[in-house]
């Protein structure tokens, strides 16, 4: 075994074109952009000092992390419920649930954000219904604030949570829970002491996927945030296009890439990433 891995594996040649393509078309341009963070407007670490000097940048980073964490918790919790229901649904129903899930997965984030605009607005469906039922007397501020952004982000992220959770749950041998029940555990005990711990890899994978994807949210905060809920991606775009501070934009982009890689590294120490993303444990 040891001699085999130390020698050059010819199968790499099959992968090489793809690797080269990624290096040339993806990594090289990104490195180019990231270099801007230490060269524009003048060489040095001036852009990075802004993290500590500028309240704007610090607030921005904190707000982005906070919103992403809340989104992650909400999306994974809701996604867990849906996955659990899908796992136990009849196969026909499950298939229909899956197609609905995938359809929503494919609808553009722009369309979904505008749909929320219709639903959550001042004269929207939700406020209209609550008003006509007499539950509220004034429309609730459901959007153009953080709440609106969180609703939009969570809804968008639920499919991202469900897919890894469902894959994980389907891999659990159903006889384990049956055994737990037959040995006298209540259904709650079976869930919390047997099923839930077994889904831990799925929960971590889903959380990681949702959190990382949430970091780059741009359209949803821009549309549902009423201009007051800026996240990193929108700020980067403003610095690129409007104020033309490419160095700051590149610095924030570098920071984002670095945090994502760091997150994956930390996670990799606890579990094999390939397993998280659907590979085979070895």
């Amino acid at each position: 075994m040891a001699t085999r891995t130390s020698r050059f594996n010819p199968y790499w040649l099959l992968v090489a074109p793809a690797v080269l393509l990624v290096l040339a078309l993806y990594v090289a341009p990104i490195v180019n952009v990231l270099l801007l963070s230490v060269t524009d407007p003048k060489p040095g670490l001036g852009n990075y000092a802004k993290i500590f000097e500028s309240d704007t940048v610090a607030n921005l980073i904190w707000r982005t992390i906070r919103l992403c964490l809340i989104t992650t918790v909400a999306a994974v919790t809701l996604g867990y419920v849906v996955s659990y229901a899908m796992l136990h649904a009849l196969s026909g129903v499950r298939r229909r649930m899956m197609s609905i899930l995938l359809i929503s997965f494919w609808i553009s984030v722009l369309v979904r954000s505008f749909a929320w605009l219709m639903l959550l607005g001042h004269n929207g469906l939700v406020n209209g219904a609550l008003l006509s039922l007499g539950i509220i007397s004034e429309p609730l501020p459901l959007m153009r604030n953080e709440l609106g952004v969180l609703i939009g982000m969570t809804e968008y992220m639920i499919p991202y949570a469900i897919l890894p959770l469902l894959a994980n749950m389907q891999g659990i041998d159903p006889r384990v829970t049956s055994a737990s029940r037959s040995l006298g555990a209540s259904s709650a005990q079976t869930f919390f002491r047997v099923f839930l711990p077994l889904t831990k890899p799925g929960i971590i994978a889903a959380s990681l996927l949702v959190f990382i994807s949430s970091l780059g949210f741009y359209v949803t905060p821009a549309i549902l945030g009423g201009g007051k809920v800026q996240m990193i991606a929108e700020y980067i775009s403003v610095q690129l296009l409007v104020t033309v501070r490419w160095g700051v934009a590149a610095m924030l982009a570098t920071l984002m890439i670095a945090s994502v890689l760091a997150l994956m590294y930390v996670l990799n120490r606890f579990m094999k990433l390939s397993v998280v993303f659907g590979g085979v444990a070895r």
Partner: peptide
Amino acid sequence: NGGDAVNAFLEAIG
């Protein structure tokens, strides 16, 4: 001064 003004404004409303 636009760049600084925009950033100061964004910070104030955020």
